[in-house]
């Protein structure tokens, strides 16, 4: 698959939140206002891109030559935890306000399914190093797009009368569902029609 094909696949066709449901926790938790949504999106995109590359190197450089493929899950999660720690330190140094806004959700990127998910998908799909990087970045961008759209919807929802029982999380899920309906327009035939396969 071409690089543009991979980008379109992970941003639109297999959007991590709306189609694969990876990273739903921060998606619901941090999407209350758009500035923290953008921050979260950028942090996740950075982490997914870097971990995709590092996990690929760990898998093909360390695990595969020694027949240790079964240690994949453990080693990947350790790589991710280390990378998240690094990102946390960098953000704290350069943007204390963003650090405050992301608060509790920054360490939670470690347990964001999207990050481990894309690392495993890269290996399962047999991507090479550059393809893994593109897939990681695309997955992060797809996440960012979904979370920014959602935060805008939620800012509007604040001002709309919503039934008491649906306020908060339920209406968020339902809005996300309607967004996912719209995203059903992007299916794999799109890739074939655009000649990207």
């Amino acid at each position: 698959m071409s690089y543009i094909g991979i980008l379109v696949t992970y941003i639109f066709v297999n959007n991590f939140i709306l189609v694969k449901f990876m990273g739903i926790c921060p998606f619901i938790g941090v999407s209350k206002n758009s500035s923290s949504a953008i921050g979260m999106g950028v942090a996740v995109t950075f982490v997914t891109s870097v971990t995709s590359v590092v996990c690929w190197m760990v898998y093909y450089g360390l695990l595969a030559p020694f027949g240790l493929e079964y240690l994949r899950t453990i080693s990947f999660i350790l790589v991710i935890a280390a990378m998240v720690q690094l990102v946390e330190m960098v953000i704290r140094k350069f943007s204390p306000s963003l650090y405050k806004a992301l608060g509790i959700y920054l360490p939670l990127i470690t347990t964001n399914c999207a990050v481990l998910g894309i690392a495993i998908i890269n290996i399962d799909s047999g991507y090479n190093l550059l393809e893994s990087f593109v897939a990681g970045a695309a997955a992060g961008l797809g996440f960012t797009m979904a979370i920014i759209l959602m935060s805008n919807i939620r800012e509007k929802l604040e001002l709309t009368p919503v039934r008491k029982t649906f306020k908060g999380v339920p209406i968020t899920f339902i809005s996300a569902g309607i967004m996912a309906l719209a995203f059903m327009a992007f299916d794999s035939s799109l890739l074939t029609n655009l000649g990207l396969v």
């Binding site: 189609v19 999380v169 209406i171 899920f173 309607i178």
Partner: peptide
């Protein structure tokens, strides 16, 4: 069909959560 697809999952989850909130209230 739509209930079985990804959009349906989010809709069902939202409705169930609303049901539990209603029961709690």
């Amino acid at each position: 069909r739509v209930v079985g697809m990804s959009a349906g999952a989010l809709l069902v989850m939202g409705l169930l959560k609303a049901f539990f909130t209603w029961k709690d209230s």
